[in-house]
């Protein structure tokens, strides 16, 4: 419990530091927000006036404190490109991203764990070799490439699934699979090796000697011990998925946080970049926190 408390404190500190880092980095990276907002014909004076209006002419540190003050009162600010209130804009994007990220998390473990178990229980069979080889590919193939290939195969060639956009569950399938690929592969390999390791433990022999069935030994006892490393994996996966979402959402035209963040960076829409980058930081640290909490709760030795 103490560890969880310490983690929470570190998390808050980390948020503060990274909020400033993001704030400063996007302003120091050059580029011009006026290009996206004002017509190309706008004069230098017009551009300067616009900057002054939104407060971009002040020193960065002053801007940062204004930003923090507003944040404390719950004012997230407005987009610089279309003046929309960020709180309204963000709700929609976050919802979309949660749908995609959430289904990826589910798919990763719903597919990865059973496949890993299967490979371990049929060790050295063609099934094991098949599952293991595909999972190596899953880890090696970059997701942008996998996204393009899967669009080409399933949308262009076969015409089974839509290539981009939002709609029913059909629109969710390709982006979810691409976003999950690496996670599934990692889960398969971790489950397989943990199962094999635990099958060699003394306690398995004890259970066998007591006449407990092989199925029960595998599915209850060995699996329980083997899930422990996966809890940490799950926590870290949350952050990974959040990061990969930038690429996957952009390619599949999924109107989520990732896509919005990429667009905002291209347009130098500072408030949007700040908000969504911070959201990613929150997600990553939250994932780590969840790993600690989950591990503590699941392990009787730590729980007691």
């Amino acid at each position: 419990m103490k560890a969880v408390f310490r983690r929470t404190l570190t998390m808050l500190l980390l948020l503060l530091v990274s909020s400033f880092a993001v704030f400063a980095a996007i302003r120091l990276s050059g580029g011009d927000v006026t290009a996206a907002r004002l017509p190309a014909s706008a004069s230098a004076a017009d551009r300067a006036l616009f900057r002054q209006q939104v407060g971009l002419d002040k020193p960065i540190i002053n801007q940062y404190f204004t930003y923090l003050r507003k944040l404390a009162t719950g004012d997230l600010g407005n987009s610089l490109t279309n003046n929309a209130k960020l709180s309204t804009l963000a709700t929609e994007k976050i919802r979309n991203s949660l749908i995609l990220g959430g289904s990826s998390m589910v798919v990763i473990f719903a597919l990865g764990i059973p496949l890993g178990m299967l490979a371990a229980m049929r060790r050295n069979s063609w099934l094991d070799t098949g599952i293991t080889s595909i999972s190596v590919a899953g880890m090696a193939i970059p997701n942008f490439w996998l996204a393009l290939i899967s669009i080409y195969v399933f949308s262009t060639l076969l015409g089974w699934l839509p290539s981009a956009g939002q709609g029913g569950i059909r629109y969710l399938i390709l982006p979810t699979l691409v976003l999950s690929a690496e996670g599934i592969a990692l889960t398969v390999r971790m489950t397989r090796s943990a199962m094999l390791e635990n099958l060699g433990q003394d306690f398995v022999r004890t259970l066998r000697a007591a006449g407990v069935s092989e199925r029960r030994i595998h599915f209850k006892h060995v699996l329980r011990s083997s899930l422990m490393p996966l809890i940490s994996l799950a926590g870290l996966r949350i952050g990974q998925i959040a990061g990969y979402a930038l690429v996957v959402e952009t390619i599949f035209g999924w109107a989520g946080v990732g896509q919005a963040l990429v667009n905002a960076v291209l347009r130098r829409d500072y408030p949007v970049v700040q908000l969504f980058s911070l959201l990613l930081v929150v997600l990553v640290t939250f994932g780590n926190l969840m790993a600690t909490v989950g591990y503590t709760v699941a392990n009787p030795r730590l729980r007691k």
């Binding site: 433990q201 306690f203 004890t206 006892h221 011990s225 009787p300």
Partner: peptide
Amino acid sequence: MSALDPMFT
């Protein structure tokens, strides 16, 4: 000590 499954009571 190692012959008993650590995850169960």
